[in-house]
Design a protein around this nucleic acid. Structure first.
Lengths: 194, 194
DNA sequence: GTCTATATGACGATAGAC
DNA sequence: GTCTATCGTCATATAGAC
């Protein structure tokens, strides 16, 4: 089988799994569910992935990489740490609307319960990049000199909570509609006095 | 068997279950684990609870009630909405140190995956009370006139993220140590201009 | 590579003696 | 009320034909 056909079938499995994992949770999704949703037999499925867990791992790593790339691009195109952080939140909000399952799976899932993750989400690459921005922002005087984790949390932690609110249907408008008000709140909290 | 003895054994089961559910997750905890940890036989366990799920439900409702009572007491003893919100965050931070499993189970768990919850955590009593404080604070001019969910999120959403950071071992000091800095950040974001 | 049929094992829950 | 032994079910994963 040619390589693109193979990739295509893998994608089909991953898409089905993502949908099911976010809708019902990992443990409430059986391999049979995934097989059925991706219109494939169990045997085939196990030809593409070693086991159920490895589907979950691949999925996570794909989504995390996407976010990483987006953050790197933001970093290259923006000078101030304020702008980097703002654009990152914008990206998260927009991605949540475009692909809710991805963001839900990345942010809202307790991966440790079914994946062998050596590090928590807080030690992942995207998290560390964001943290480096905050610390750089403190060094260059954009952000007040408080405990970095607290600043970090004020900027991105509550952004993630906004994603939860949206996923759970509490926020009726699309997330980008709240972006400016959200940012105003967060930034007031951490910026240096003017 | 007298009533207090019965209560005592029930508590023993609930304690064991809480510990296991938070350490490994609901689905990675078997009824046998609970039975073993509470030094009781399976048969006995099923005499106290209908099934595994009902243990989880009882647990949740107990913890939620504790928080509700604490919030009510805070409401009675504080005039301004600023003070109510601040004391609520303090309470959450302190409780996280005193009883991490409770807070983890209440805030960090995806109950919908294993419980028949009609409402999300965001429609629960504690959440609604906090929201009412924020709205009242907006009416009386303590809090800026922004979308209530955004204000709500700036005050309590990021407090909950702080709890996550602590539970995941990112914050090395005890949560109350961060309280003042945390609050300064959050309140700056939502307070009316002075 | 893909399929169907099945082995294997674990879990939740119950039966029935004491 | 408490226990041990066991049942029924279902999920993951594999075997083996095509």
């Amino acid at each position: 089988m040619n390589n693109s056909k193979k990739k295509e079938r893998q994608e089909k499995i991953l898409d089905a799994a993502l949908k099911l994992f976010t809708e019902r949770g990992y443990f409430n999704t059986t391999v049979n569910d995934i097989q059925f949703a991706s219109k494939m037999s169990v045997g085939s499925l196990y030809n593409y992935f070693e086991n159920k867990e490895s589907i979950a791992v691949t999925l996570y790593s794909n989504i995390e990489n996407c976010l990483c790339e987006a953050l790197c691009e933001i970093e290259q195109n923006h000078e101030s740490m304020h702008d980097c952080c703002f654009e990152a939140v914008r990206h998260i909000f927009e991605t949540t609307e475009r692909s809710p399952s991805s963001m839900q799976y990345l942010l809202y899932t307790k991966h440790r319960e079914f994946m062998p993750v050596e590090k928590t989400a807080f030690a992942s690459m995207p998290f560390l990049k964001m943290k480096s921005w905050v610390e750089k922002g403190q060094e260059n005087g954009e952000i007040r000199n408080i405990e970095p984790n607290v600043a970090m949390n004020a900027i991105f932690g509550s952004a993630i909570r906004m994603v939860f609110l949206r996923i759970d249907g509490i926020l009726e408008s699309s997330l980008p509609d709240y972006l400016d008000e959200y940012w105003e709140c967060s930034w007031r909290g951490v910026r240096t006095e003017q």
